[in-house]
Design a protein around this nucleic acid. Structure first.
Length: 326
DNA sequence: CCTCAGGAGGCAC
DNA sequence: GTGCCTCCTGAG
């Protein structure tokens, strides 16, 4: 299937959005692949492109599923809808670029991020755990941790092009061991304690392990995250921030990348540096709380996209280096 | 080549 | 305001 939309797959996949880690990249084919569940069937999505004005979507079904039992038309319709959601293809980038160019402080962003789109979650729970893992952490570290987690607890599917793992549901992580001591005590073989690596701590989540466990418990026993789709931004924010390990920044990441609340403006030190530089004459007295309010008031429904473009602008233009080398 | 101190990051307390 | 946990960088 060919999609004639402006999108830069590399930028979108690798910009550190906390809906999920980047998909598996195959260099020789220039393809990003990931498994999703579509109509109860695991489907491997494969996206590739030669230029940013279009991309191709291909798919595979698992080796152990007989091709004759799948309804191809139905599958293709549903994966098309899914890719439109995940790559946010309904968002009008041209209109957004006009908005950026109307603000002389924002207009340089366009040149560094052409084709960058929101990378939305297929599974909101994955976005919740990914966002919690990203706090006080680097992109490389949290994505490595999430990939390890998927390999240990996620369902494994074999496709013609290889093995892929889905992010596990909350009840699986609710049951998972927190660290190797817990795992050791539940095992009757009593091996050396270092041998126990089937636990959250061993994935490198550090002190965030109890936060991940608690979030898993809440979404297993107490509430359904799908309720967030029926809330206003403010209602959803007030609700999600109650979870331990979820502060203002993580809450906004979850709402933006996991649930598509476009008015969220995730505010961290990087955004603070670049906004201070662009809008406040580099006077960084502005607090993170004020920064979030500034972003939401100034950019409105484009707040999430502006945050994305500002971050990428800072990262790729060398502006972040300049702002931190002093 | 090695080791090790220092830095980075958002949140709970 | 302080400490959390892990990885990365750079100095020696």
């Amino acid at each position: 299937m060919k999609f004639n939309n402006l999108i830069d797959l590399d930028l979108t996949q690798l910009s550190g959005q906390t809906s999920q880690p980047p998909w598996t990249y195959h260099e020789n084919l220039n393809t990003y692949s990931n498994v999703i569940i579509s109509d109860n069937i695991p489907i491997l999505l494969k996206t590739s492109q030669n230029n940013i004005n279009s991309f191709n979507l291909d798919y595979e079904i698992p080796n152990n599923i007989d091709e004759s039992v799948v309804n191809k038309k139905k599958i293709e319709k549903s994966i098309k809808e899914e890719i439109i959601k995940m790559y946010d293809l309904d968002f009008d980038l041209d209109k957004f670029y006009k908005f950026l160019k109307d603000d002389e402080k924002l207009s340089p962003c366009c040149d560094f991020s052409k084709g960058l789109r929101l990378f939305r979650a297929s599974d909101p729970f994955e976005a919740i755990i990914s966002s919690i893992s990203s706090s006080n952490n680097s992109i490389k570290r949290w994505t490595t941790s999430i990939n390890k987690l998927k390999k240990i607890w996620g369902d494994e599917f074999e496709f013609p092009s290889g093995k892929y793992y889905k992010f596990p549901p909350s009840e699986i992580l609710f049951d998972a061991y927190g660290d190797n001591l817990e795992e050791y005590e539940a095992d009757n073989r009593q091996m050396e304690i270092e041998c126990y690596t089937h636990n959250l701590k061993s994935c490198g989540f550090g002190y965030r392990v109890p936060y991940i466990k608690e979030a898993s418990e809440i979404f297993t026993l107490e509430c359904d995250y799908n309720d967030f789709f029926n809330m206003s931004y403010k209602q959803a924010y007030d609700e999600i921030i109650k979870i331990k390990g979820v502060g203002p920044k993580v809450a906004d990441c979850i709402l933006l990348y996991g649930f598509g609340f476009m008015e969220a403006f995730p505010s961290d030190v990087w955004i603070k540096r670049i906004v201070s530089y662009l809008y406040f004459d580099n006077n960084s007295d502005i607090s993170i709380k004020e920064l979030r309010e500034f972003g939401m008031d100034t950019f409105g429904k484009y707040a999430g996209y502006v945050q994305l473009y500002l971050f990428n602008y800072g990262r790729t233009s060398g502006l972040f280096d300049k702002l931190t080398n002093k």
